[in-house]
């Protein structure tokens, strides 16, 4: 790959006076999976939110798909169609059924026609095993089902990059595997470029092309996938992996 899909350059983020992210640098190539690991409170969510324009950052730059990203709301609104994000708390819209949740973006944001979108959505729903639930309301679904729909809702915009923020952290153990399998499938058979925050270490080890280890808002290790798990360099990373019972 010549130019990376995403390039983060000297990113600095503050909440008021608190310095949250310190000089974050990394690149992500098309088709690659980057996992972002680190203890709770290390700034993983904050970084992801900066990458989707939900948070402003104070210094540094982001380049996406060859284009310098400013912090203008208008530009972010355009970019978000290409950068899908899935949250820990699913956040389906309770006032809309499954299909309406999924169609909102393609129809209203991208102004595509229902006839064009529907077959794609149908296929995505089948892919995640939710084809029978198109007319269900979020409150009728289990956590795992909601999360699968939330993933479809993001994919329906045909993004070039997907951000996953601890999407299995609120799920019962038996549901976790289903959701992880969907993400794995996206990486394997669709070559989706992804940035994944997770506490599922087995999964992270299988899926990662690249690992960023974050602690106290700084990148402490940046290694190819397997290497991080087999030979963590820093003591913090060793402790982190030990605490993960891995």
């Amino acid at each position: 790959m010549s130019t990376p899909l995403l390039h983060v350059n000297h990113l600095e983020k503050y909440y008021q006076k608190t310095h949250i992210l310190h000089d974050v640098n990394f690149e992500l190539n098309t088709g690659e999976v980057l996992t972002l690991l680190g203890p709770s409170g290390s700034g993983k969510s904050t970084l992801l939110r900066c990458l989707n324009g939900l948070e402003a950052y104070q210094q540094g730059s982001i380049t996406f798909d060859g284009q310098a990203v400013t912090q203008k709301p208008k530009q972010w609104q355009q970019l978000r169609q290409q950068i899908g994000m899935v949250f820990q708390s699913y956040d389906l819209f309770p006032n809309r059924n499954v299909l309406e949740n999924i169609l909102l973006g393609p129809l209203k944001v991208q102004k595509r026609t229902r006839a064009a979108v529907l077959p794609e959505v149908q296929q995505l729903l089948e892919q995640v095993g939710m084809a029978d639930y198109a007319n269900a309301y979020p409150r009728q679904l289990s956590g795992g089902q909601k999360q699968r729909i939330a993933i479809v809702r993001a994919l329906a915009l045909k993004p070039k990059l997907m951000l996953f923020d601890e999407v299995t952290a609120s799920l019962d153990p038996e549901m976790v595997r289903d959701v992880l399998n969907i993400i794995r499938q996206l990486a394997d058979s669709h070559a989706m470029t992804m940035l994944v925050v997770t506490h599922e270490m087995d999964f992270a080890k299988q899926i990662s092309d690249q690992v960023l280890f974050l602690a106290d808002g700084r990148i402490r290790e940046q290694t190819p996938g397997k290497q991080f798990f087999e030979q963590p360099q820093t003591e913090r990373a060793q402790n982190f992996l030990a605490s993960m019972d891995f």
């Binding site: 989707n52 609104q77 169609q81 994000m85 956040d91 389906l92 819209f93 973006g105 915009l157």
Partner: peptide
């Protein structure tokens, strides 16, 4: 707030 962010994340104006 999450609902608002979920909406922003799919690019709603």
């Amino acid at each position: 707030q999450h609902q608002k962010e979920a909406g922003q994340a799919i690019g709603l104006t």
